[in-house]
Design a protein around this nucleic acid. Structure first.
Lengths: 173, 173
DNA sequence: GCGATGTTACTCGGATACTAACTGTCCGAGTAAGCCAGG
DNA sequence: CCTGGCTTACTCGGACAGTTAGTATCCGAGTAACATCGC
């Protein structure tokens, strides 16, 4: 199984969609984002409550409410999002095999437990490298990279899709 | 859940036990290793067949058989072991959300699929950093680090435990 | 007009299936070493 | 002797159950904007 859940993927893409081609942010609600990206609504809603609890987005309740970024998109790193959604989970869960050696018979000597397990140290430093890399990229970076690939009309189309959806909704009432 | 299975942990520790304080290798069978480390035997057996298939260890079948390292312990990296046991799994499984944008209506334009997804790129480079770190540490490194912490008697005790176990086994027959 | 009331569209949070992967166990097959009996 | 069969202790591989985490869905509660209705 993948280490990072697909919830992370949904979350990052959603946050990217909250930034336009110029780096300006826009407030959106979960249903819009779910429909725009063809992603399960209920699931995405839960993801956004996590993003909210982590302080990456700010919610406004009630009709017409939604989410907006809590701070500038260049200050939200991929690592922030990952931590917000999946929590600070560890790539490797040390089971302290070193203490189980049959030699010791239920009483491992002190030197065994002195300092972290060697295997664990390696894994931890590897995870640290990984997270450093994730911290180097921000939501703005990703949004910019996407818009650079897209034609100029794209940003407009997205904006129109959103506004169309909103007017249609009020019309249908 | 952790990204790397506990099988990886069992595998690494087992390989470490196949190297003594001086860096010399010793052949061992699965039952010995399982008992020495208090780890489930059947499970560990499966792990060693994977290590064998990956060419990290060489098996000798039949009575008195067992496993020995296929190459010097300083040439076996933690990354090798991880790949052998867990396979080349990906930290992040891109679901190509970018193609699902409602704008496109079942036909994403060419520019969308051009090159890898931005999110995926970040994740892939992060994983690469992680694996680079894992590749920097070898079984010998780990074994040395452990023996450096342990008193000199430790290596002898391990060796005695193994030989005692072997003689007891032949006696009990 | 204007305030009270109701409706709508949101954010929250809990409860609950479904699925996939990991972990661990069981068992049978194949293989080689050593023992042992029969020639 | 020594040769063939038997036992033993291994490696292999498949099958399977239990547990856990991720994914997804459903529903009720709270909240705020807005419309509507009665005064």
């Amino acid at each position: 199984m993948a280490f990072y859940s697909s919830g992370v993927e949904y979350g990052i893409h959603s946050l990217m969609n909250m930034v336009d081609a110029k780096g300006n942010e826009r407030e959106m609600n979960v249903r819009e984002m779910a429909e725009l990206q063809n992603v399960p609504y209920d699931y995405l809603a839960k993801i956004f409550t996590r993003l909210s609890r982590a302080g990456l987005v700010v919610s406004s309740e009630g009709k017409g409410g939604g989410f907006r970024l809590a701070r500038a998109s260049e200050l939200i790193t991929v690592l922030d999002v990952v931590h917000a959604i999946d929590g600070q989970k560890s790539m490797f869960e040390c089971k302290e095999i070193r203490q189980r050696l049959a030699l010791f018979e239920e009483a491992p000597p002190a030197w065994v437990c002195d300092g972290p397990c060697g295997v664990r140290s390696v894994m931890d430093s590897a995870q640290q490298r990984m997270e450093e890399e994730l911290a180097r990229h921000t939501i703005l970076d990703l949004a910019r990279k996407m818009h650079r690939k897209a034609p100029d009309t794209f940003a407009i189309e997205v904006k129109e899709w959103i506004s169309n959806r909103r007017t249609q909704q009020t019309k249908s009432v």
